[in-house]
Design a protein around this nucleic acid. Structure first.
Length: 800
DNA sequence: GCCTCACACGTTTTT
DNA sequence: CGTGTGAGGC
């Protein structure tokens, strides 16, 4: 009897799994494994173009529809032969029928509200939501999916009062606001901005928050073990403390606080923590390589209930280190959680073999990586095109001519092309040439709508109406348009506010009580009445009316009208805000002023990214992540541009190389790389040598296209030395046959364990060496300067 | 309090 | 080479 049951159960499980494989037949075996592995922590290392989003979306849908059916051995206890036969006979049924059948036998399907899906950008969040909706219909609405910041804010809105945040009038400060706040803190502390760059301080504070370092801990860290203060760190610590105090007085949070405060909430308030740990049965995180420490801690707490955490990422595409992302999160995933499975997705469905081989040969030169090799079953394809131009105007012209050529020869659309720049400055030359050429294009790197001064001004009014304690926004607009409320008056107001421990707006409201304000009294009250009046409007009128009244009654519109032609664009932008507000009301009937402000500060790409327009796309490599194009141009492949600026020297180059990898892997069919002989940067002409990244790509994958002048020069040379034609015409740098290795071997006179002396860091011991491109990367433990990674040609350490 | 001129500075970007 | 900011004059 028992034996018969086992057989029946085996047949049942086998038939069920076969049906799942049919249902998910559009995925490859590795992708399917990733979808079906839902219990315990899972790390998916997904290379570029390997179907990462498809896996993520299918996995979430699978969890909701089928729970843990595939790998679960659970069988329905009333199972009989007819069940098994039903499954076995369904093999040839259509997918809808199979799905319905499998749902009947689902093991612990998860309700949508039990799933948390976190992404980095709104773009990604939107894409995932859209693709899920196709599969799950209205069930998507219950899934918590969004960016780290939107998810955290949702929690703070609900439970923020438990850590002392007023929930209703919570204000979000963007990067621009925080810069201003840091500056004003430094002024108050009498720290000379020439001695300590406020931008650096802001960055430092932001990095500290990424690592969950509080002002108190930061202040402690400013002292070494002997109790001596590091002057610089101590100064920054004092700014950090005051900065945080001012944020809290204004009931404001910056972007980093949104994460850090949520962690604080979950760590200190057990009830909240248990509530979310019980709620979220499955936690999924996209772009895991870009997470920082705070986000890692947050994710581990949220997943702490069921331990079903999944992270998708690609260590080779980590390009936000400068913003606090730690690649260690992905490298240490298996150590951070228990019972971890790791699945690698290495089959690329996007690019041709030549493009992939080129990408692989570049990224291979990085040391700190999990090691992954993309492959494709597509053969060959076009080789990469390399082209050297005289200057950046010539470069832009070449690109446009090439586009026109391919449009005619290969019948391509303009929207097939993308130009990926390392720096925004590169795009302005290209833009100018495009305008003249008449080829349609769109720039995706200019100033965004909500970052424009006039738009931020109007938003500041709205913020102040929403939260009168917001001193920063008050100061921004109190004299914009001019109301004769300049620095003298406002400094007086600020002084009183500090003394009375209240907000500046409160002081202004009670200005009759302060003799120091008697002269400006009527002007101050005019402003107070304006804001209070608009506050009343906000309580009853719809949002678009409030925006309109704000623009009119504040005198802002008049100011722009009087400025005439010069400010026409600003006026249009301001008026655009009225229709934006109207649109928001249509999409969010229950929307309030504060929810609108939240959306605006968290959602940056309401931008006019018109997907359907037939135009060439110009953007930075950073913003191209996650996108793909049939034809990609990478201009400016020169040392000093790409790899750029200060990042040419040490380990920073690895991030640049990942960036290059991202750029290359955006291309589906064609990749065209250009570099120039001379480039004007900041009014000075640079003569940069060709990028090391291009030298890392073997010649087999590339074709060098010559300009007419170069062809002529070559023919002349050929007449004398027909056998020794220089392939890289005019180039004096020879490419090693196997990139890097040979030349590297020549420089390397050091071996591991050697004692070395460096010109700035002093003496140390060589820990490791690694050939990189045409150079060697040394890791040296210096006796007095810590462990550093240095390039042999730049650092020139000497053996002692 | 406002305007103008000189000087400084100038990667990458999402939230 | 541009742009934006800040100090100093009016």
């Amino acid at each position: 009897m028992e034996r018969k049951m086992t057989t029946l159960a085996d047949r049942f499980l086998k038939a069920k799994r076969e049906l799942f494989d049919i249902l998910y037949g559009h995925l490859n075996p590795m992708q399917r494994k990733a979808v079906f592995t839902v219990k315990n922590p899972l790390l998916i290392l997904a290379g570029a173009g390997s179907g990462k989003t498809t896996v993520l979306v299918n996995r979430i849908a699978y969890i909701i529809k089928f729970g843990n059916s595939y790998y679960s051995d659970t069988i329905p206890y009333e199972l009989d032969l007819s069940d098994v036969e039903r499954l076995e006979n369904a093999k040839n049924a259509d997918k809808e029928e199979i799905e319905g059948l499998l749902k009947e036998y689902a093991v612990e399907p998860c309700p949508p509200w039990g799933v948390l899906a976190i992404t980095f950008t709104n773009k990604a969040a939107k894409e995932i939501a859209e693709r899920l909706e196709r599969d799950l219909n209205e069930a998507v609405n219950d899934i918590w999916s969004g960016t780290f910041h939107s998810v955290c804010l949702k929690m703070l809105r609900k439970f923020g009062d438990r850590i002392g945040l007023a929930k209703s009038s919570l204000t979000i400060y963007d990067t621009d606001d925080t810069k201003k706040l840091v500056s004003s803190c430094m002024k108050e502390l009498n720290i000379d901005e020439k001695m300590l760059n406020p931008k650096l301080v802001r960055n430092e504070i932001s990095r500290a928050k990424d690592k969950l370092i509080t002002p108190e801990v930061y202040a402690k860290d400013a002292f070494d073990e002997n109790g001596n203060a590091n002057y610089r760190l101590a100064k920054i610590a004092s700014v950090y403390k005051l900065y945080q105090q001012k944020l809290s007085e204004a009931n404001a949070v910056d972007f980093d606080d949104i994460i850090m405060k949520t962690v604080e909430l979950l760590q200190t308030d057990e009830e909240t923590r248990l509530y979310y740990q019980r709620k979220f049965k499955y936690v999924c995180i996209d772009e895991y390589q870009d997470t920082n420490k705070a986000q890692f801690v947050l994710a581990s707490i949220l997943a702490g209930g069921y331990n079903n955490i999944m992270a998708v990422g690609d260590d080779d595409q980590s390009i936000y280190k400068f913003r606090g992302a730690t690649i260690e999160n992905i490298l240490n995933f298996d150590k951070s959680f228990e019972n971890v499975s790791v699945i690698k997705l290495e089959q690329n469905y996007r690019s041709t073999k030549h493009i992939l081989d080129a990408a692989n040969s570049v990224i291979r030169n990085n040391i700190g990586r999990k090691g992954k090799e993309l492959w494709t079953d597509k053969e060959g394809g076009e080789r990469l095109t390399l082209r050297r131009c005289d200057n950046q105007i010539d470069e832009a012209k070449y690109i446009i001519n090439k586009i026109v050529e391919l449009v005619i020869k290969e019948k391509r659309r303009y929207s097939d092309f993308a130009i990926l720049c390392r720096m925004n400055v590169q795009s302005s030359t290209i833009e100018n040439v495009f305008v003249k050429s008449g080829v349609p294009f769109r720039m995706l790197c200019g100033t965004r709508f909500y970052e424009r001064k006039e738009v931020k001004d109007i938003l500041s009014y709205l913020c102040l109406i929403n939260n009168p304690d917001d001193n920063l926004r008050l100061r921004r607009i109190v004299n914009e348009p001019k109301r004769k409320l300049g620095d003298t008056t406002m400094n007086a107001v600020e002084k009183i506010a500090v003394a009375e421990n209240c907000s500046m707006f409160t002081v202004m409201k009670n200005c009759k009580n302060y003799r120091a304000l008697s002269q400006a009294q009527s002007k101050i009250l005019d402003f107070v009445y304006l804001i209070e009046g608009l506050r009343k409007v906000s309580e009853t009128a719809p949002l678009n009316e409030l925006v309109e009244k704000t623009i009119r009654l504040s005198g802002y519109e008049n100011m722009l009208l009087l400025a005439g032609e010069e400010e026409k664009e600003r006026l249009e932008n301001v008026l655009q805000m009225i229709s934006n507000a109207e649109e928001y009301m249509t999409n969010n009937p229950d929307g309030t002023l504060s929810s609108y402000l939240e959306e605006v500060s968290l959602v940056a790409d309401i931008d006019n990214y018109d997907k359907d327009a037939d135009a060439v796309t110009i953007m930075t490599v950073h913003s191209a992540k996650g996108l793909e194009f049939p034809v990609v141009f990478i201009p400016g492949l020169e040392e000093g541009i790409f790899p750029g600026g200060q990042n040419v020297i040490d380990e920073e180059v690895e991030e640049e190389r990942r960036l290059c990898y991202v750029a290359i892997t955006r291309a589906r069919e064609r990749l065209i790389c250009t570099h120039v002989k001379e480039r004007m940067v900041f009014g000075q002409t640079q003569y940069n040598r060709i990028s090391r990244f291009l030298e890392e790509i073997p010649e087999d994958y590339t074709v060098r296209e010559l300009s007419d002048a170069e062809k002529a020069a070559n023919e002349q040379k050929a007449a004398f030395k027909p056998r020794r034609k220089i392939e890289f015409s005019g180039e004096f740098i020879k490419k090693p046959e196997e990139p890097g290795r040979q030349k590297a071997a020549n420089i390397s006179q050091l071996s591991i364990g050697d004692r070395v002396r460096h010109i700035t860091f002093g003496e140390g011991t060589l820990l490791s060496l690694k050939p990189m491109g045409a150079d060697i990367l040394y890791e040296i433990a210096f006796d007095n300067a810590g462990t550093k990674k240095l390039m042999a040609t730049y650092a020139k350490p000497k053996k002692i």
